[in-house]
């Protein structure tokens, strides 16, 4: 808080605007002096808006970790003729927010990334993000198929399942992903039942 602002606050209280009730005035002095006012977006409670702002300002992943998340997410959901890739839809930033929002995710992600880098260094002498694309794919092939994978890489399979799930959610809840999946709602309309050609396709009349 700027000095000028804190002076303003003191003046308000001391002029007695909030001090009409001595109990309220006493409670007010409990407020920490350096809390920055947060703009509360519509639909959010104050504590939620403050919490979100605090989390946004923090950093969890290192630039190197984020780089690996970016490469991995684009291997999971690459760009194609219909839409862009996971990282183009903001998946790494979404995962960065989620691990701060739900700290129980931090160790599975950070630890999983380290497991992956450790494997890559053993196999190719370099961390995942620095390896050649073909080497990255070779590793992914080992951990992307839970029913085919060998027991030696089971922790990698768990990490890749986690990564696949968060990549899918991050992508398909983005503007790009919603367009891709073809969700057409969230807008005022009149519901008249499934379209006639759909009923026909499924051998239904609508009066089942």
């Amino acid at each position: 808080m700027k000095r000028r602002d804190s002076l303003k606050t003191i003046t308000l209280s001391s002029l007695g605007l909030a001090g009409l009730n001595p109990q309220i005035a006493a409670a007010e002095t409990l407020t920490p002096p350096d809390v920055k006012p947060v703009k509360i977006p519509g639909g959010r409670q104050k504590f939620e808006a403050e919490r979100d702002a605090k989390l946004m300002a923090e950093k969890f992943f290192t630039p190197q970790e984020l780089q690996t998340l970016t490469v991995l997410s684009d291997i999971i959901i690459p760009a194609d003729s219909r839409s862009g890739s996971a990282s183009q839809a903001g998946v790494p930033a979404f995962i960065e927010f989620m691990v701060k929002d739900q700290p129980r995710l931090q160790t599975p992600f950070r630890g999983g990334l380290r497991w992956l880098d450790n494997q890559m260094v053993k196999r190719y002498g370099k961390k995942f993000a620095e390896c050649l694309k073909a080497q990255q794919i070779e590793m992914v092939e080992l951990i992307a198929y839970p029913e085919k994978a060998t027991p030696e890489v089971s922790q990698g399979v768990s990490f890749f399942n986690l990564m696949r799930g968060f990549t899918a959610t991050g992508f398909f809840t983005s503007q790009m992903g919603i367009k891709d999946i073809g969700y057409m709602g969230n807008t005022p309309n009149q519901w008249e039942g499934p379209p006639a050609d759909v009923l026909k396709q499924y051998g239904l009349t609508g009066n089942e």
């Binding site: 968060f166 398909f172 709602g185």
Partner: peptide
């Protein structure tokens, strides 16, 4: 065909 939300595609 609902709105994709947190959890979509997981599992």
């Amino acid at each position: 065909m609902g709105m994709p939300m947190y959890g979509f595609g997981m599992g």
